[in-house]
Design a protein around this nucleic acid. Structure first.
Lengths: 250, 250
DNA sequence: GACTTTTAAATGTCAGACAAATGAAAATTG
DNA sequence: CAATTTTCATTTGTCTGACATTTAAAAGTC
C-alpha cells in the first residue's frame, strides 16, 4: 500500500482509501488487526494525527473498530446488518430532507418496494410476524395515541411485513426506505376517520399475508398507497390555504 | 451543543454526533459554514486535533465538505443522489461479501426489487431508456466479450430498466442492490449458450417495457431470475466437484 | 482602472508529550 | 504450587504548539 504525497488529495483521504481498498479486496480480512497507528505512520511516512484522521474516516463507515490497551488497535469490522441498516437510514433520511423530495415520489418508492416483498412474505411469514402485525394494528386503534406514536407503529407494522419475506438483504434495503419516510409521515395529522381507514387496510393486508394470498396483499398495499397519498394531499392543501391567507392579510 | 467529557464515549464521537444532530434536525442548513476548527475547539473545550477527527468522521459520510483558504472552512453538504448512491454501493457490497450472503438470497432480493420497478417503468419509460437497453442487449450478443464486460453490461441494462421508473428515490435504492450483486455475478462464467438465453430474456423484457406491458415484464424478470439461479447453481456445483476431487487426491 | 503584491485566515500536516485503558508478565501471598 | 495482586509495556485518546499550504481579499503599483 503506497500513497502519493504530491497528489492534490489529502493524505488522510489517500490513506483511508488505501486501507478501504485492502478491506474490500480481501487483503485485510474480518477481525484482522491493522498495524498500530505508529507503525502505519511509519509505513505511509506521515504523522500519527494524519493516520488517526484516516482511521476515523473508516470508523465512521463501520469498516473498522478500535480498542485501547495493550492488545488493542484497529480491527477490520464485520459489517453487520444492523450497522448497514443504521447507515442506510441516516443516508436516506438526509437525502429526502435535503433534496426536497416530494411526498409523492418518496411514497411511490416506498410502496413499490414493499410490494416487492409482499409475495415472498405471504409465502414464508412466521407466526411471529403475523403476531407483530396484529399487535401494531391493535395499538393503532387505541384512542389517545399521538400522531408520532401512530407513525412509529405504522413503521413497525411494515417492518414486520418486510421481515416476513425472510430475506435479510431485502429487509435491510427496505427498512431504510420505510424508516426514512417517517419524518415525512410525521408531518401528517391523522384524524380519527383516517386512522380507521388505515387500520382497516392494515387488517386486510395482514389477513392476506396470513392466508398466503399474494394478490390480495398487493391490492391492499395499492389501496394503502392511494389512501396515504390522498391524506397527504388534503393536509398539504390545507396548509397551503393557511399560508396563502397569511400572505394576503399579513 | 454540549458534550460530556466524563462520558465513556470518545470526545470526537460525541462532537461528530452533536454536529450530525444539528444537521439532521435542521439547526444547520445546507451550505451553511460551520465555525472554524479553532472556534469549535473553544466551544467544545477540546483541542483542535479532536475537532478535526470529528469533522473527518462527518466528511466520510458526505455530511460536510471542507475548503482551504481564507474564506474556507467546513460547510454542510447537500447530500446528492450520487453521494448516497456511492455510499450504498460500498455498504451493500461489503455487507454481502462479509456476511457470506448466499447467491440465492442476494439474487432473490435483487429481482424482487426490480420487479417493484417494472410496472412503473413500463408506464413511464422514455425513449432514452429503451435505447440504452437495446444498446446493452446488442453488446451482450457480441462474441469475444469478457465475462466481466458482460456483467457490466448486464448492470447497465438493469439500471436503465430501473431508471425508466422515473423515480430518483427508487433508482437510488435499486442501483445499490443491483451493483452490489456484481461481485457475486462476476464469479459466474457465461457460456455462449447461457448468454444467448439471457439476451433472449433481456429482449423480451425490453419489448414488454416498450409496449407498456407490465405483466410481461414481470414474467420476463421471473424467468431471468430462474435462469440466473440455474446458471449459478451449475457453476457452483462444478466448482465443488473440482474441490472434492482435489481433496480426495491431494 | 487594471494588474500585481501582500496579508490574513483557514485547513493540512508535523513533532512530541502525557493520560488512560488493558492485557500479560512478574511479584507476592496463602 | 496455586491464586492473587502488582507492575509494566503497549496502544489508543487527547493536548500543545508549531509550520506549510491554500485562498480570497486588501493593499499597493503602474
Amino acid at each position: 500500500m503506497k500513497i502519493d504525497p504530491s497528489s492534490p488529495a489529502d493524505l488522510s483521504v489517500q490513506i483511508a482509501d488505501a486501507i478501504r481498498d485492502a478491506i474490500v479486496s480481501g487483503d485485510l480480512i474480518v477481525d484482522e488487526r491493522l498495524p498500530s497507528e505508529a507503525e502505519l505512520a511509519d509505513q505511509f511516512n506521515v504523522s500519527r494525527p494524519t493516520v488517526r484522521e484516516a482511521l476515523k474516516r473508516l470508523a465512521a463507515q463501520s469498516l473498522i473498530r478500535t480498542q485501547r490497551g495493550a492488545t488493542g488497535g484497529a480491527f477490520v469490522n464485520r459489517l453487520s446488518y444492523t450497522d448497514a441498516y443504521d447507515q442506510q437510514v441516516t443516508t436516506a433520511t438526509l437525502l429526502l430532507s435535503m433534496n426536497a423530495v416530494s411526498f409523492e415520489t418518496a411514497c411511490e418508492a416506498r410502496y413499490a418496494l414493499e410490494r416487492a416483498c409482499a409475495p415472498l412474505s405471504a409465502q414464508r411469514h412466521s407466526a411471529d410476524h403475523i403476531a407483530t402485525m396484529r399487535t401494531e394494528i391493535f395499538r393503532q386503534g387505541q384512542p389517545g395515541l399521538t400522531d408520532e406514536a401512530f407513525c412509529a407503529s405504522d413503521v413497525a407494522f411494515h417492518r414486520a411485513l418486510v421481515d416476513g419475506a425472510d430475506n435479510p438483504v431485502l429487509s435491510y434495503q427496505l427498512a431504510g426506505a420505510v424508516e426514512a419516510m417517517q419524518p415525512l409521515m410525521n408531518m401528517i395529522t391523522f384524524t380519527a376517520r383516517s386512522r380507521e381507514a388505515i387500520v382497516a387496510l392494515h387488517t386486510a393486508i395482514a389477513d392476506a399475508i396470513e392466508a398466503g394470498d399474494a394478490g390480495a396483499a398487493l391490492t391492499g398495499l395499492h389501496d394503502l398507497e392511494a389512501e396515504t397519498l390522498k391524506l397527504a394531499k388534503s393536509v398539504f392543501e390545507a396548509r397551503n390555504r393557511v399560508k396563502a391567507d397569511a400572505q394576503r392579510r399579513p
